[in-house]
Design a protein around this nucleic acid. Structure first.
Lengths: 206, 206
DNA sequence: ACGATACGAGACACCTCCGTATCGTAAATC
DNA sequence: GATTTACGATACGGAGGTGTCTCGTATCGT
């Protein structure tokens, strides 16, 4: 049973993939430089990318569609392979990943813009949450569940894993997203992890 | 020595203070409803406030000046009197204050917008940081220092109070600012504080 | 070669905003 | 009552964005 050939043979000059990349790259650069979403214009993007405006509209119906593709194109530094040597080591890697994302201007600027746009553009936020945030949080949930199995995390905390994820990510996220002048030095992840593991109160057994 | 009367007698019809309030109120409402800074226009604000555009310009030189005043006008739910019954109780009040700010749309929306604008409008960010953020963090630093004195916080952590503030505020801030659908129920602050105090690792003495 | 499509450039009509100015009216001082 | 300023409404030119279209040129399949 042979249906109609959906992959119709394209006629005429094919689209130059490099042009599309160039546009996306320009959008990400502008965002990383601090341009808020609201200040981005199709005209400015085309100008900045050295591309005809019609060429941009040929690929994207409008700014929202373009931003959606730009959002997906941010190469989120994925969480690397966990060493697995200990729960603490794995947690350090996870927190260190957040630190590196904070240093990547593209990633953090995109996040800030999404937070601001969230109420105004729920669909964009939904896609961002689904594509980026949910994935990151799911990885952390798995890590924490493993920690409970290993006995490295108090088991009763497993009843609210979401809170646990907030607790683990919060400190480093606040550092990166909020006061952007705060130092993000090398050993930071380890210090944060030790706080997460042991808290700030003195050892009760002491 | 009598200098010139600086409080010159005003002539003509005096300005209506209610008009200024109405404009500020409108700005805060629009921001709380999710309008990003970039989408705010002097024209739209005047229209929405039912006020002549010239009247707005009579009071503020431009959008930045207006936003500056609007920012200051957000009634930040200040940290209430600390009970002082115990360090933990005080910490719960502090974290609870962050939760209540997160529930106040004006406050959280303003924060999100400031974060996005930070790179683009450093002066506005500086003022916001100075007026709002620095004050809040200073109060927390004092609380934590008192905790060290009381022996409720391990003294060696006092070497990096800023990190400690991030650690204490991070979890609740992430919850309020990031995924705005997360539950912010009543007992949340206490649970967060217990995590902050004891960490997630099992009691080593056990 | 030829038709089809893509490309950069730019023109186009339409819209909104900016910041100022001008109305008629209102509210204060002199 | 005369003068001065504030107020809402509205008009104004200028700037810049939107989305479409038309150029001349380039690059593909046939």
């Amino acid at each position: 049973m042979s249906g109609p050939d959906t992959t119709a043979v394209p006629r005429g000059r094919p689209r130059d993939a490099a042009v599309g990349h160039k546009v996306i790259e320009t959008v990400l650069r502008l965002i990383a430089e601090g341009t808020p979403f609201g200040d981005l214009t199709m005209e400015g993007i085309a100008r900045e990318a050295g591309v005809g405006k019609a060429t941009v509209y040929r690929r994207w119906a409008g700014k929202d569609a373009l931003l959606l593709d730009a959002m997906v194109a941010v190469d989120n530094p994925a969480m690397p392979e966990l060493p697995g040597t200990s729960f603490r080591d794995d947690l350090v890697v996870a927190v260190e990943t957040i630190r590196r994302r904070g240093l990547a201007k593209r990633d953090s600027a995109m996040l800030r813009n999404m937070l601001t746009q969230a109420q105004n553009n729920p669909e964009l936020w939904r896609r961002y949450h689904e594509t980026v945030i949910a994935t990151r949080r799911a990885a952390l949930r798995r890590l924490l569940e493993r920690g409970i199995e290993l006995g490295a995390v108090r088991p009763e905390l497993g009843s609210d894993l979401e809170l646990l994820v907030d607790f683990v990510t919060g400190p480093m996220l606040v550092r990166t997203a909020f006061h952007q002048d705060a130092p993000l030095d090398e050993g930071l992840a380890e210090r944060v992890v030790d706080l997460i593991l042991d808290g700030i109160a003195p050892d009760p057994a002491e």
